[in-house]
Design a protein around this nucleic acid. Sequence first.
DNA 1: TTCCATTGAATGGGTGAACCATTTAATAAT
DNA 2: ATTATTAAATGGTTCACCCATTCAATGGAA
Lengths: 253, 253
Amino acid sequence: MIFRPIRTRRAFEEICERIREQLALGVLKPGDKLPPERELAQQLGVSRNVLREALRSLEMAGILRLLKGVKGGAFIREGDTSRMNEVMRDMLSLGSISVRELSEARINVIDLVVRLACVSARQRDFEALEANIERTDLATHEGRLLDRVECSREFYKLLAESTGNKVMAMITNSVTEIHMRFVYAKVASSGAATPRLTDKRRQFLSALRARDVAAATRLMRIHLESVQRMLELDPGSMSLHVALAEVQPGARR
Amino acid sequence: MIFRPIRTRRAFEEICERIREQLALGVLKPGDKLPPERELAQQLGVSRNVLREALRSLEMAGILRLLKGVKGGAFIREGDTSRMNEVMRDMLSLGSISVRELSEARINVIDLVVRLACVSARQRDFEALEANIERTDLATHEGRLLDRVECSREFYKLLAESTGNKVMAMITNSVTEIHMRFVYAKVASSGAATPRLTDKRRQFLSALRARDVAAATRLMRIHLESVQRMLELDPGSMSLHVALAEVQPGARR
DNA sequence: TTCCATTGAATGGGTGAACCATTTAATAAT
DNA sequence: ATTATTAAATGGTTCACCCATTCAATGGAA
């Protein structure tokens, strides 16, 4: 006989769960506003402090957005798909997953994404990728190496979105975001840059446009593996801590 | 010129970030204990309540575990890979992703997992899957339909783990967990059960053992699509709200 | 001595009242 | 009509206090 340990039900857990429940039931929807803290606390029969702990947790989970001032309050947010990135980052920080596993998963996930994109990508996806390659070209010629990394991040994001499946996009972004931190750290420290990057991108895009799965996946895999080798040449800049602690452009600071 | 809106830095955000930073830097590791709330609050120069909001958020994020009593405190947890499941669930609740996208992603991700498992699965993985099929058989013969669903959930978990890649496992579980809620709701309401389930599983396992990628992926895809069709037959039980609000066996209540 | 009950200290869980800071709308002054 | 002022609503923060749980130290009984 096995007894699972009972965890003391704490007020804030109960509150979080109830709000999530209302969400799941569709009673609460993005855009809705919860009652003011003082009022809600009274309704729930808890102190304002405890209620705030719950609201804070939900805010960190990307479910709520708290705004100050009259007309402020706790609003249900649109879902923030980047939450998954944070989870991935936390797992890496905590040592629950390894960089190797992440890289391997990324290569395979992107392989899948390419297959799906070959089937589902539409004209405007091609155009967005084309425009991204243009920007990458510009950044390359102007020597803005870190901007070029940012372009790469965006490239994979656009590629993932071209599958037309937001779940796939979310998954892809979560494995790509961390990977890009390593690339960023590497480029920032060594000034290394993938040679003929935009050529490779254009070749790939052509295969994608032709919906040539075999060619597209082959080109992408070759590229990803070459980047992987570049990163692995210098274990120092592959340091988990360097990459994770690195301040990113666009990071909320 | 674009000005990104500045978000007021709030004390608890700063605290969360600092602790995450210490984690990323490797200064804090799983098992470590933070100073007592009263002491840490003083060190950080904030009130205990604010510190608690930060600790709560980190606890909900799966990073901390708070224990009461002398010898209690805030401990850094081992990473909890199930956090990703919650994110997926929240995104669904908030309408940021659709059930259709989730199902499609799941079918494709599992296809990938099967490919990887064909290459990486080891003897003990096969044995674990075999044991799972035995349990499924037992549950089937004893008419424990909901236990059988639980077995299915575990089957995909074991399969994902047999890739030897925890990132892939995490991703797979996150798309499978929600899916299983729908299956659970369907089975609970209609008593429907996939016919010849364990036969199909055994066939699949044979292909996996033989490392026959083509056969394994084909068998799996056929099965997944048939389950999909079963679920879609009855849009009522596919209701998002029903499935998400459904109490699960093993759910922390 | 050994064992069990009691006690006390440490720590998280929770409360209530108060005040600060920001935002917006209503109001007053120009 | 426009601009400056004011007031109210709301989240942000602090303080002081008490409760509940846990565990180690203490002490008495067998």
